[in-house]
Simulated assay, not measured.
Amino acid sequence: MADMSIFDELSEMIAIRINSFNEEDHGRDWIEHKTHSDYDLWFVQSGQVHIQIDGTEHTACAGDVVFFYPQIPYRASAPAEGCRFMYIHFEYGIGGQQRILKDFPLSGIVRHTLIQEESRLFAASFGRTTERGGTPGGRLYLKAGLTAVIARIIELHGQDRYTGAFLKGQSPRRSERNLDTLQPIFQYIDDHLHQPIKMAELAALVGISEKYFISYFKKSLGITPGQYLFQVKMNRARAYIYQKSYTVQQIAGLLGYPDPFTFSKAFKKHYRVPPSKFV
């Protein structure tokens, strides 16, 4: 399974774009056959929704959150008493990789007992945004609510408390751009930050040429391996400074920089202030 820690390491690079959102109320005869071009979340407010994907039927009840991946055909219905739900279509990406979530089996029904707090936050932000005239910052509240829901789903999966059932436990994407292949890279970087790391070393870990490795990495993660390495170093630098237990020279050594000047220059490039003035 691909390492979920990349969402923390690259949190500053994550981009979320809301495409559309609304609330729907359907009677008992409602049937929908669709395939979406983006991510889609449904927040079931009342009734039950029956969802059929690849011949398997799933049932979402009031309070549950339904997570659809792009390009996955489904059939939805509410045969008993109808249903009501809020939905939101969105994009979620890192760098140039706008389908990063599809490397993880998150598509499915998240039961209300696992996501109550985040669902309430989303519902409140949805209300701010859709009330007559809206409210200043309403869209920002909605984006914050959506971010909290996605973060919770990622957290649950990382804790082995939730795995989406819509894809029957299989990886949703079988292509050359697969984060599973890069797992040794992430671990190696984390273990060797104290020394210079060359692209040839990383490429050798996954058994491909250096030139192809850089292209493969960028297609998989949306950024280059150099950008990833730099971001991880800056994350660690920030943590070391907050600890107030290391000098700038010591931090430079811990992160594989040849001297404090080179480290300070890199730090200032990222955080816009030198390490000595970072608070």
Rank of each mutant, 00 (worst) to 15 (best):
K244I: 02
E9C: 07
Q71N: 09
A266P: 07
F217A: 04
G82D: 06
G127D: 15
G253I: 00
L140V: 13
P70M: 00
F261G: 09
R111Q: 09
R152F: 01
E12Y: 09
F186Q: 03
R28N: 08
E9G: 04
I100M: 13
P258Q: 11
D54L: 05
G158Y: 12
L205R: 09
G63M: 01
F217S: 01
D190V: 11
F21R: 11
H50S: 07
A15F: 10
I51L: 14
S264D: 04
G138H: 00
I53W: 10
K233R: 15
V49E: 13
H112W: 07
L255P: 05
S37E: 12
M13L: 15
I189T: 03
D180S: 13
A144I: 04
N235D: 09
E81W: 08
G108T: 05
T130P: 03
Y216E: 12
Q249H: 07
A80V: 11
E155L: 14
Q52A: 07
I6T: 02
Q183L: 15
N19A: 10
P258V: 09
R177S: 13
F104W: 12
R174D: 08
H194L: 03
Y271P: 08
G96S: 12
K233G: 02
Y240S: 09
I94E: 00
P70N: 03
Y216T: 02
R174Q: 15
Y212D: 10
R17H: 10
R152Y: 06
P275I: 04
F166A: 06
K102E: 15
S11I: 03
I109N: 08
F263Y: 12
K218F: 02
K277N: 07
L182I: 06
G95W: 13
K143T: 14
I153N: 07
G47N: 04
E201F: 08
V248Q: 12
N235Q: 03
S220M: 04
P136T: 08
A76T: 00
G63P: 07
K244G: 01
D160E: 15
E118A: 13
A151K: 09
A76N: 02
Q97A: 00
P172Y: 05
E24D: 14
S125T: 00
